[in-house]
Nucleic acid binder design. Structure first.
Lengths: 326, 326
DNA sequence: TTGAAAGCGCTAACAA
DNA sequence: TTGTTAGCGCTTTCAA
């Protein structure tokens, strides 16, 4: 393909070792160094990073596995990850499991095979076996989330607590009828990922604590379900949605059906998607600081790689964003 | 690190070649094959893809360089690219130049150094030198865009035509006063990327053709500029914004200032961001079919890599999306 | 200051 | 059917 150190060595009449020294330091006479650098530049020498990785045992590449990039959530996170890692000259291998456990496994294998120096995962898998598998992976791993068991480094908000807080927030706004809307992620009928499950738990606890009946809307037909609920309920409901995009869809549908937010119903989302904060009505939502999750998971991973710290879990703060829909 | 073919060879008492044959085919006795596969599985053998790449001369990795992931635009595109490439077992190295020419150059070098098999770029650089540089890169490149000169493969909508069409569309809705809003991408004062420049040209041509005066709003203070314009103009204006997110901000600001869309002004965006099509008012916009751009650029790149086709440019169709804001 | 040699883990050509 | 050898491009001892 391109020019190699071997070529440079031959042309300059020196050994490959000398070429290396010219390029990356080591004791060498100035004129030989200059001569080599000169021809290197002239011939457009580019080091083969694969070869270097092979011998150094580090690829300067981080693998990332998330579900997809359709929502604003992961792109924002990845943006932060990329920008953090770039400072340390790491490259990012981004892959999408699309909620398929098999795909996730395959991608994991492939990334490991490519000798990534570390992994950041928002997993599709969530059974015991998988956690065990993750723990035994030969490279450091950071999982996006929290409370996933010992031995796994995580970064994320406390989903359970955040949801409880959201319920309290809504209660504080004089709603007695709180419905939690948790559609399946992606286009599969799965209950969704771990974070969303934890949110259900948080919702459940908070409702029990306040003695109110729990109302869950699951399934991909959540929009119709919400509309039906709205039509038939006797008391002004608040729909807490496990994602801003869902909240938008529900809100828009209810409006079209002639209902008005705040007056007839309340609605709240999760994620704090930028663009919705500039739209009216401003969506009330939970800000889970996704860029911070991105940045910190990247930083934690780097620490794990350089063994500056060992496995740990970082909890990112969350906060309620008062909009105009509750 | 992990187990290697060498280890397997020693353990099974065969040569490394035999191990390879067991793993990937070649004439081999069934029982030796099984024995090898068995121990390979037992020991969790994972091929070192870097080593393989080194000898095969192909890394099964595609490099992508885009500005950032903050908008919905590139994430959607990347989602499509990833899903296309995944079918062919390619991995994706995604990097962000953030509108810095230097960063872009650095990333380009680095990706090439990592021996990516191909590149997809939405460039920050746009001068002659850069195109020449791109042409001489040792791997196939697909650039997102159109009409960038000979010898460069491109995939994208005809930005100029799309903008002209948008102007016509607006004229058809009885606006005589069309302002084009083109904020700088990212947080730099740059005029923006090539596509946006081409849009300006398209706007210009269409306005000239209809004998109307051109009104451009540039700069990062476009929101205030738009508001000022609104306050001082005598004829109902239509703001054509070179991106849905900008349109949203302008719209929301104008509303807050007491103006009403359609009645007092019209507004139209670019990109057709999903979530905005579900919100009310539905934003009138130009759909540039970004998933299609993603998929086709990935496919074209694969063709270039396998030399099934040579350099070419693919034009993706665009279309106007009638919303409620014009 | 310079060079020779070995090796990272893999594949491929050629022998046996 | 199996093994030997060489080499991808680089780094890293160790010796000169």
């Amino acid at each position: 393909m391109g020019v190699t150190t071997k070529d440079l060595a031959k042309i300059c009449g020196v050994s490959r070792t000398t070429v290396t020294r010219a390029l990356y330091g080591g004791s060498i006479r100035d004129d030989t160094k200059n001569r080599i650098l000169e021809t290197a530049r002239a011939l457009g020498y580019q080091p083969d990073l694969l070869a270097r990785s092979l011998v150094k045992g580090t690829s300067m590449t981080i693998g990332v596995i998330v579900v997809d990039l359709r929502n604003q959530y992961f792109p924002k996170m990845l943006d932060a990850i990329e920008n953090t890692l770039k400072e340390y000259n790491y490259l990012l291998n981004i892959t999408l499991h699309e909620n398929s456990r098999e795909t996730e496994q395959r991608l994991l294998q492939e990334l490991i095979g490519h000798r990534v120096d570390g992994l950041i995962i928002s997993p599709a898998n969530q059974d015991r076996d998988f956690w065990e598998y993750l723990k035994n992976i030969p490279v450091p791993v950071v999982v996006i989330g929290n409370n996933l068991g010992d031995g796994i480094s995580t970064v994320g908000i406390d989903e359970e607590q955040a949801t409880s807080d959201a319920v309290s927030f809504i209660l504080g706004k004089n709603y007695q009828n709180i419905v939690f809307v948790v559609p399946p992620l992606s286009n599969c009928n799965d209950p969704g990922n771990i974070g969303h499950r934890q949110r259900v738990v948080g919702y459940s606890k908070a409702m029990k604590a306040s003695g109110l009946p729990e109302q869950l809307i699951l399934g991909s037909d959540y929009i119709e379900q919400a509309l039906n609920y709205m039509k038939n309920c006797t008391q002004r409901p608040a729909f807490l949605c496990s994602g801003d995009t869902y909240a938008i869809e529900v809100l828009s549908t209810l409006r079209q059906a002639g209902f008005t937010e705040v007056k007839d119903f309340g609605i709240m989302g999760f994620d704090c998607i930028d663009i919705l904060q500039k739209w009216s009505p401003v969506l009330t939502t939970v800000d889970n600081h996704v860029e911070q999750i991105g940045r910190q998971s990247a930083e934690l991973l780097l620490e794990l790689i350089s063994e500056k710290s060992s496995r740990k879990s970082i909890k990112i703060p969350h906060n309620m964003v008062s909009g105009e829909t509750i």
